[in-house]
Amino acid sequence: MRWLKGVGVARLLLIATGILVLTVALWPELFVTHDPTAVDSDSILQSASWEHPLGTDEAGADVLARLVHATQLEVVIAAGSVIIALVIGVPSGLLAGNSGKLIDGGISSGASAILAFPMVLFAILVVSSFGTTALTLVGIIGFVFAPRVFVLVRAQTKALKEREFVVAARVTGISPRRTMARHVLPNMAGPLFTLIPQLMAEALLIEAGLSFLGLGVQLPDSTWGTILESSKDYYVTSPGYAVAAGLTITIAAGLLMASGELAAESFNPLKKRRQK
């Protein structure tokens, strides 16, 4: 069981959770039997029971089924936005970190401008022109995240560029592109893998925030955010409904944050846990 010790119990649990979440996202019907879009006027806003473990919503649909089926969109939004951020942020960061003042300054100012722009205002702009679909949300969040990846990659490039092994590689005549790909990029994997889960957690929270403002996806699609949004109208008589939606978001974001922490530890030799 040495491999188990090497990985660590916490990591193992997180990996298992990750696999579970992906399975839920791909095959939600394996986990719940109720149809999330089914409307049943005889069972409106019921509290938890064996039939409906998390109760029912204002249209009589099973809350658990809705939350489970919404996982798919959440994964799409969290992963999609981070992929967009990486696709924009990594090349531009590498470029800026390797270029002279003009190009570096230009890209960096662009990134600062995006960072300075109020996110919600931007989201309202985009949503009112393109409508609310999961895709627009992915685009918005990905675009807002891109400068964060950019800033990290640019700083790492600048620091790594001066390190002996990179200088040595350059001296031996390896092309700059190859140096970047083989020596600089792999060495910033640690910070990047720490950032990614944290961005994903933020994506979930931003999605919930936008949905709460009425900028979420429209029915029959639903996300944890839109479920929370509709639950708030009934929090006096059916608190369980709102708590279920809210806790789901909190736990998911918390788990992602924790995996970011663990990733940071794994990549940082100074922080590595003592394992014999």
Partner: peptide, 29 residues
């Protein structure tokens, strides 16, 4: 129109029934 939760509920109930007969209805709020 937004500001009328009853209308949103109607859209939801109707949408579910329409889906069963193969009609796809999208509410635009």
């Amino acid at each position: 129109p937004s500001g009328f939760p009853d209308a949103e509920q109607i859209a939801r109930v109707w949408q579910a029934s329409l889906a069963e007969v193969g009609v796809s209805m999208t509410p635009e709020i």
